[in-house]
Design a binder for these strands. Structure first.
Length: 888
DNA sequence: GATCTATCTCTCATCCGTGCG
DNA sequence: GGCGCACGGATGAGAGATAGA
């Protein structure tokens, strides 16, 4: 699958080169994919440098398109007069219900492309538009649509047709084109809820041969073949556009040429409103005009609107739309504390959940299952708690009187570092049952809900306004730079963040993630799910009883322990003994089996899963086998396999301080060769070591785990600081549980915004070639690189430069950086352990040495492994590079 | 052992219907 | 009663897995 995706990426890459397609690979959270089969600079004409604003920096070319957003929903608000069936929730409906119009950034002007029939139109006077925002998603965008036919006949209107509006209603430029053409699939798959008038406009509602029967997919499912051979599906049946409209009309001119994209702020996402610089996110009615201006949040929209505590009683308050923030200084907004986004840590950055003073705590966890809804569906409601209510989050230790904003977004739940989920977005729920007001924001393509944390409520918030939106896999997978795959990637976590202002002007950022939530339809009723295990580790001899708590266990449930290699090859599998007498539907009593090799000298991480049927298996759970006491282990030379295996547990096992691996601070970037050669674990994986450093180095533990960052001018004086892993790291050797949770791992340094750090790097420029050398050894994501760079180069950044472009560096340097990224793919490697190299099925030597040609094998049945493979692939390349460069 | 093809199985994305407020 | 939301269920297409040639 991954290979397939890669091929597609290559294909699209070639196309992009042909068409001067903008490279969007750097979009997601400022983390350029490390494993792209192309270089970032392979897209000539793309205005990466010329038009990319700094992170958080408003681009004047784009500013007119930005608008802050939004009060709490339209619930209970009067609809615009004369607007029939105008939904109180007007959103982009990115799927098939799109209109194509305007220009396609790749293929030029799109004329008369919409096959859709006219939709019910509210009165013109009821809507206000921002033309720049009314752009076809097909035109720039995002995920899929720029290839092949490049636009869809269903290209997105600014608002969903389900709202009974035509594109022309929402954007003047739509007018006159909405009835063109006719589609063989007129009004494809329009939901019955969407009550369009297309039926009356002629054309069958569904291509189904059975009138009245369920229609087929809007444009039919898109296949890889279609992706590869866009011409085969040309015409109105072309693939649907990505959910997001991006207005090219504006952006094309920015930066010149066709590639006028804004990197720093624009991100391509399958999410319709996710492109701050290109796509309208919402259309809401204003007070004055009773219209629905389209606006979206700029990356610089770091403030939120005053919280409307009770939208039901003050519906009018929604109509208050602040002027574009880029036009003025950040206002002092009562209510929720406002912080410039540029000063906030990116969503990809790991944050601690607590400090000495504060703790962000999930009082009530969400249910482990929540069926996410597609954009074509109606809402499936807010995430609920197991108890029947809703999740509750509280900020403890806060004594201030200021209301803070609790940010919510959907994050990943896989092995890797927590980051915004590519295939899911938080969805604001509005309804009669929703009591919590919320604001919707877009940060680097990630939709964020912000709800107030009020002292009067003891800084507690009931999360009853957050649903989960599923984006179509194809839309996301095909966007440039996206390496994740959506298939079976259905686990998410709800991530909560809060930024607590400090008296000195700094802010403390805390983050906590919920338990994983399975978002697929089926699994909620069929797949077993392990929610809790009372044992994380056991002696290699096994025999201990472990209680698994979860759902959908059955009398036929089996528990399988497995061990896999880096390549995902399973080298060990054994079924645990299940005590069926004790076991229940929500609880399994098992006996941990003995590990295959009782002579291991280090903890070995394995997985286990519960399986009910052939394919009804739970997500893999982690488990560790602990070696017997040292005295009982025969000392033998370790082979390559063991050596690599040991690398992961080395620091803990040997009680070696991470400081031995690193020099501070610069050496934090590179493993100490001497350290790598110590003990019997000579080849500790360099990519892993840095990730462990903060947790292992006692120096870090003495400091506050929180990320404290400066805002504004104060950042200039904010030198680099080291912040420890909040998770206590025990000194007990060999205890696998002491490894910090990768999802809660703190970061080393945050001296300000990413842009600041980028600026720092720029200032250091070529004199810091060594840092590149280091980073070529230790691969981090760009964000992590920023962290490391910040740690390494504590430059004082003038306030006026704090928005220096992360991607807006001088061309030369930018290219160099891109080359670096190309040659040394980045990866977030923060797994406490990684599956060991193949021993029995694959030659360890080559793998170990990193000279084995990369081959990614992804099995559908194990998505986590796919992720691991993805990472491991990069690591192998990295190792190859290291060796090839003579351990530079 | 590698490749191709056919078939099976399952996921995805959408649609349908119902209950509730 | 109408409407919209929430939600469970169903469905076809298509992708992946698997077996056989």
């Amino acid at each position: 699958m991954f290979r397939e995706t890669w091929r597609l990426a290559q294909y699209h890459h070639m196309r992009s080169m042909d068409q001067d397609e903008p490279d969007l690979s750097t979009h997601k959270g400022l983390t350029p994919p490390g494993s792209l089969p192309y270089t970032l600079e392979d897209t000539p004409g793309f205005g990466l440098k010329s038009c990319s604003p700094a992170y958080g920096e408003p681009n004047p070319e784009v500013l007119p398109d930005y608008e802050t957003f939004e009060g709490k929903g339209f619930l209970g608000q009067a609809r615009p007069s004369g607007a029939p069936a105008l939904s109180p929730r007007i959103e982009i409906t990115p799927s098939r219900e799109h209109y194509s119009h305007g220009r396609d950034s790749l293929q030029g002007q799109l004329l008369n492309t919409s096959p859709r029939q006219a939709l019910t139109v509210p009165g013109q006077d009821s809507l206000a538009y921002r033309e720049p925002a009314c752009l076809s998603p097909a035109s720039s965008n995002s995920s899929t649509s720029w290839h092949s036919e490049s636009y869809s006949p269903w290209a997105s209107p600014c608002v969903s047709p389900s709202n009974g509006q035509t594109a022309g209603d929402l954007c003047p430029r739509f007018q006159g084109i909405q009835t063109s053409g006719g589609s063989p699939r007129a009004s494809p798959g329009t939901s019955p809820r969407t009550s369009l008038t297309e039926d009356c406009a002629g054309g069958p509602r569904s291509p189904s041969p059975r009138p009245g029967s369920r229609s087929t997919s809007p444009q039919g499912k898109r296949t890889y073949h279609m992706y590869r051979n866009p011409g085969l599906v040309a015409g109105p049946r072309s693939r649907s556009p990505s959910p997001h409209s991006a207005h090219h009309d504006n952006h094309q001119s920015v930066g010149g040429g066709s590639g006028g994209f804004h990197y720093g702020s624009e991100v391509i996402n399958g999410f319709g409103v996710a492109q701050p610089s290109s796509v309208p996110t919402k259309i809401i009615r204003t007070v004055s005009s009773q219209g629905y201006p389209v606006y979206q949040e700029s990356p610089t929209d770091s403030y939120v609107l005053p919280c409307q505590q009770d939208v039901k009683t003050k519906p009018e308050s929604f109509y208050v739309i602040p002027p574009p923030i880029w036009t003025k200084q950040l206002p002092s907004i009562p209510g929720i504390c406002s912080i410039p986004v540029a000063s906030l840590p990116p969503l990809e950055w790991p944050l601690p959940s607590r400090t000495d003073q504060y703790e962000l705590h999930i009082e009530v966890q969400p249910k482990p299952h929540h069926r996410a809804h597609y954009e074509t569906e109606g809402s499936r409601g807010a995430v609920k708690a197991l108890t029947g209510g809703h999740p509750v989050v509280q900020l403890r230790g806060y004594r201030g009187k200021e209301t803070l904003g609790l940010q919510i977004f959907i994050g990943t739940a896989d092995e890797r570092i927590l980051k915004p989920h590519a295939f899911y977005q938080v969805h604001r729920i509005t309804g009669k049952t929703v009591t919590t007001s919320s604001y919707e924001k877009i940060l680097n393509s990630t939709k964020i809900l912000e709800i107030p944390l009020e002292p009067k409520n003891n800084m507690k918030a009931i999360i009853d306004c957050a649903g989960i939106l599923k984006l179509r896999n194809a839309d996301i997978e095909l966007r440039k730079g996206e390496t994740d795959i959506g298939r079976k990637n259905t686990r998410v976590r709800v991530v909560f963040r809060v930024h607590i202002p400090q008296p000195n002007g700094q802010h403390v950022s805390l983050q906590v993630a919920s338990n994983p939530i399975e978002c697929s339809q089926r699994s909620a009723h069929e797949l077993p799910m392990v929610e809790k295990q009372d044992l994380d580790s056991c002696s290699v001899l096994g025999g201990q009883q472990m209680i698994l708590t979860g759902q959908n266990f059955s009398s036929d449930s089996k528990v399988i322990f497995t061990e896999k290699t880096h390549d995902g090859q399973q080298i060990w599998e054994v079924e645990a003994t299940v005590d069926k007498d004790k076991s229940q539907a929500s609880m399994l009593f098992i006996e941990v089996p003995a590990f295959r090799d009782p002579s291991i000298c280090h903890p070995v991480k394995v997985n286990f899963y519960v399986i009910n049927g052939k394919r009804k298996r739970s997500q893999p759970q982690h488990f560790s086998f602990i070696p017997l006491p040292v005295a009982s282990i025969k000392t033998e030379p370790v082979d390559e396999y063991e050596r690599s295996h040991m690398a992961y547990g080395l620091p803990q096992l040997l009680g070696v301080s991470a400081a031995q691996y690193y020099h501070a601070p610069r050496s934090l970037l590179a493993p100490d060769p001497a350290g790598l050669g110590m003990a019997s674990c000579q080849q500790a994986r360099p990519a892993t070591a840095p990730a462990l450093a903060p947790a292992l180095d006692p120096r870090f533990q003495q400091q506050s785990p929180a990320i404290v960052y400066s805002r504004g001018a104060k950042s200039a004086s904010a030198g680099p600081s080291l912040y420890p892993q909040p998770t206590p790291v025990t000194g007990a050797a060999g205890a696998p549980s002491m490894l910090p949770d990768p999802h809660h791992r703190s970061v080393l340094v945050h001296t300000g915004s990413p842009s600041q750090q980028q600026q720092q790097q720029q200032q250091h420029g070529h004199t810091h070639a060594h840092s590149h050398t280091h980073s070529s050894i230790i691969q981090f994501s760009s964000t992590n690189n920023q962290l490391l760079r910040a740690a390494e180069a504590p430059l004082v950044v003038a306030p006026e430069h704090q928005h220096a472009g992360l991607f807006g560096e001088p061309p030369q340097h930018g290219q160099q950086q891109q080359q670096q990224q190309q040659h040394y793919p980045t990866v977030i490697q923060q797994q406490p352990y990684a599956p060991k190299m193949a021993k029995s099925r694959s030659p360890p030597s080559e793998e170990q040495s990193g000279t084995l040609p990369a081959r990614v094998t992804v099995k559908q049945e194990n998505l986590d492994q796919a992720y691991l493979d993805d990472v491991n692939e990069i690591i192998r390349k990295d190792l190859t590079g290291v060796h090839g460069r003579g351990q530079t």
